[in-house]
Design a protein around this nucleic acid. Structure first.
Lengths: 115, 115
DNA sequence: TCACATTATCGTATATTTACGATGAACGAT
DNA sequence: ATCGTTCATCGTAAATATACGATAATGTGA
């Protein structure tokens, strides 16, 4: 029982974790790719391109929408999904930053450090 | 019922999703940061730096170890954790690639495309 | 050998995620 | 108005994740 525990996590940590969660399923990784390649895409097209039922795809889209990575515009009876460019840019930048900082470590192996 | 559904997901998609899952909790985002900053770190130190019980921290470390982002070397009764540099490098590269490709889209808004 | 320190694992409770069929809501076309 | 299409939501089942106390395992040092 050395020192007191730190409080909660920072907003930054929570944000990165939340985005990672949104991307933590192959279907959602793929949906982002598909939406980017096709620029914009009806929900039904996505259903055909994924090995999942319509209801399940809808759920995955909802999760991506939740964190703002995509948006869906209603177009008559259909819904046209596309990547949210601003958000994608921020996420790209933030993760690049995060990983770059991780890579900055001096790469001392555990054995080398050894107290 | 247009065309047949695609098969499974690619190894690449599964890999990215799995790494994202490993990073989908603020504690694990923070652990990576801490290990990088301190170069290497005893498990006990991490417990003090996180608002979580020892058993819970151990679980989070296990998840990061599962995907190979960190490794733990036994040092007497202690365990010295550090970032797996090779894996971190691969992950950094792969995610950079993924995001860069996403950003390549022509950014046609749904309304602009409109059939 | 006997405590002590350190960490993983077990057991368990609760919450979240994933998946799907069924249903409902909104719209276009007839 | 009714029908078919498109998509979200509901209900639900099964799996996974998160958290913690308790316990086991391992090594240090007295």
């Amino acid at each position: 029982m050395a020192t007191a525990k730190t409080q909660d996590f920072t907003d930054d940590e929570i944000f990165l974790a939340d985005i990672a969660k949104a991307l933590s399923h192959p279907a959602r990784i793929k949906i982002m790719k598909l939406l980017s390649e096709m620029n914009a895409c009806m929900c039904g097209e996505l259903v055909n391109l994924l090995p999942l039922a319509q209801a399940t795809v809808s759920q995955h889209l909802k999760e991506l929408k939740r964190v703002g990575l995509i948006q869906g515009d209603i177009d008559g009876p259909k819904v046209c999904y596309c990547v949210n460019v601003e958000m994608l840019f921020k996420v790209t930048k933030d993760f690049q930053n995060y990983f770059n900082n991780l890579n900055k470590g001096e790469k001392i192996s555990c054995k080398t450090k050894k107290k």
